[in-house]
C-alpha cells in the first residue's frame, strides 16, 4: 500500500495535467473554428477557379502542350508531405508519415527514386532520418498565407521542369472530413491533371457563345496552371490546419477523460490508504490500552 503522501502528490499532479489538457482542448476548439472559417472563405475561390479551369481546358486542350502537364516516364517521384508544426494531436501526424513511408517503400521497390518536401515541422522530424528530404518549410502552419503556398509551388514546379528533377509529384496531407474524422490523403500534383467538368453540378446556365480570350486561351492556361498549383497547396494546408486542431481537440478530450479516471481511481486508493492508517492507529491505541491493564 503506497503511503498517503505519495498518493496525495500523485492526485495533485494528475489534476494539474487534467487542467492543462482541458485548456488545450479549449484552445484547439477555438483555433478549429478559425481554421474552419478560413476554409469556408476559401471555398468560393476554389469553386470559381475550378470552373474556369475546366472551362478553359476543354477549349485549350486541342492545341499546344504545356510543360506542366507533360507526362514522362516516371523515374523519380517527389512527395510533398504536409503535417502540423506541433504534436499532441493524437495519431494525426503519424498517420500521414506512415502513409509517406509506405509510399516510399512502394516506389523504391519499383526502382524509382523518391524525394520529400516537408511542410510543417512534424513530418520533417521523422522523415529526416531517411535522408531524402529535399526541402523543408517549418513553422509556417500557424500563420501561412497564399504567398507561402506560392513559394512551395514554385519550388516544386521548378524542380519538376528542371532536367534530372522529379517526373511526378504527389501531395500527402491530412484531409478534414469532419471534426471527428481526419484521414491521410494523397493527391496528384504534377503533372497537372486535365480537369473534367464538375460532376453533376452543371445545373447553372450554360454560357452561350465563345469566350473572348485575352491573351489566347493557351497563354491564359500558362498563367493559370501555376496559380492552380498554388491553390492546391493552399487548400491542402488549410485542410491540415483544420484537421490538426480537430485532432488535438479529440486527443485532449481523451486525455482529460483519462486523467479524470485516474483521479477517481487514485482517490479510492487514497481513501483506502487513509482508512488503513486509521485502523492501524486504532489498533495501536487499543493494543497500548490493553497492555496497561
Amino acid at each position: 500500500m503506497p503511503s498517503l503522501k505519495e498518493v496525495k502528490t500523485k492526485i495533485v499532479g494528475v489534476t494539474k495535467t487534467a487542467q492543462i489538457t482541458k485548456a488545450m482542448n479549449m484552445v484547439a476548439s477555438a483555433k478549429l473554428r478559425g481554421a474552419q472559417e478560413k476554409m469556408e472563405a476559401f471555398r468560393p475561390y476554389t469553386a470559381k477557379f475550378n470552373e474556369a479551369m475546366s472551362n478553359l481546358s476543354e477549349r485549350a486542350n486541342t492545341g499546344g502542350s504545356y510543360p506542366l502537364m507533360e507526362k514522362r516516364d516516371v523515374k523519380s517521384v517527389e512527395l510533398i508531405i504536409i503535417t502540423s508544426d506541433r504534436g499532441l494531436c493524437g495519431s494525426f501526424n503519424s498517420n500521414i508519415i506512415k502513409l509517406a513511408e509506405q509510399k516510399l517503400k512502394e516506389y523504391e521497390a519499383e526502382g524509382k527514386t523518391v524525394s520529400f518536401i516537408c511542410v510543417g515541422k512534424k513530418g520533417f522530424q521523422i522523415l529526416k532520418k531517411t535522408g531524402k528530404v529535399r526541402k523543408t518549410y517549418a513553422d509556417i502552419m500557424g500563420t501561412f498565407q497564399m504567398f507561402n503556398a506560392r513559394e512551395i509551388a514554385t519550388e516544386v514546379s521548378e524542380h519538376f521542369l528542371a532536367d534530372g528533377g522529379s517526373d511526378r509529384v504527389e501531395l500527402l496531407f491530412g484531409e478534414f472530413k469532419s471534426v471527428a474524422i481526419q484521414r491521410p490523403a494523397t493527391k496528384e500534383f504534377l503533372p497537372v491533371q486535365p480537369l473534367e467538368a464538375a460532376e453533376g453540378e452543371e445545373s447553372g446556365p450554360q454560357i452561350s457563345g465563345e469566350y473572348i480570350y485575352e491573351p489566347s486561351a493557351e497563354d491564359i492556361m500558362d498563367v493559370l496552371q501555376p496559380l492552380y498549383l498554388n491553390v492546391m497547396i493552399y487548400h491542402a494546408m488549410l485542410e491540415v490546419g483544420a484537421s490538426e486542431h480537430a485532432a488535438r481537440m479529440t486527443a485532449m478530450d481523451n486525455a482529460t477523460n483519462a486523467c479524470n479516471d485516474m483521479i477517481s481511481n487514485l482517490t479510492i486508493l487514497y481513501n483506502k490508504a487513509r482508512q488503513a492508517a486509521i485502523t492501524a492507529e486504532l489498533m495501536d491505541i487499543v493494543g497500548g490500552a490493553e497492555a496497561l491493564k
Binding site: 474556369a52 457563345g209 469566350y211 473572348i212 480570350y213 485575352e214 486561351a217 491564359i220 493559370l224
Partner: peptide
Amino acid sequence: FGVLANHAPFLST
C-alpha cells in the same frame, strides 16, 4: 480594359 453592362463573355489574366 473597361467593362460595361452586358459585355460579351470574356476571360483575361
